[in-house]
């Protein structure tokens, strides 16, 4: 009867859709892993590593408010950063296992020196 027929076609449609979505997701997974690898190779390339920097004036311009203090943190991989809930105060802790952490302020003057 009609209800059954409707149900059958709905069932079929859904099955096809889920099937399409499964395929789309697999494609995405593949692209994501390729992209992750590409990015790693890109950033680990010694030549790129040397050229992968911003200038102090770039930083100043990016946080272009005269009343802002800009702090730069350079930490070894796997350093842990913990931030408290705002309701419990404003606290940041950094914990490294692989080497010292570097923290400095971005200068405000135009000397361009950090």
């Amino acid at each position: 009867n009609r209800i059954d027929a409707n149900l059958v076609s709905r069932h079929k449609d859904l099955q096809r859709e889920v099937c399409d979505l499964t395929e789309a997701e697999e494609q995405l997974d593949e692209l994501i892993s390729k992209c992750t690898l590409q990015l790693r190779l890109l950033t680990e390339d010694p030549q790129n590593k040397k050229l992968g920097y911003v200038r102090c004036q770039d930083l100043r311009k990016s946080f272009d408010s005269p009343d802002q203090l800009v702090m730069v943190i350079r930490a070894p991989p796997e350093t842990q950063m913990q931030v408290t809930e705002p309701s419990e105060g404003y606290q940041v802790s950094l914990k490294s296992t692989q080497g010292p952490i570097d923290v400095f302020l971005c200068p405000e003057d135009s000397s361009g020196v950090c």
Binding site: T43, Y53, F63, D67, L69, M71, V72, I73, R74
Partner: peptide, 19 residues
């Protein structure tokens, strides 16, 4: 550029009011 005028990636920025 002089090494004291650049910051290599990766880094993190923390910004807040000067006050």
């Amino acid at each position: 550029p002089p090494s004291n005028s650049i910051i290599h990636l990766p880094f993190i920025i923390v910004n807040t009011s000067k006050k």
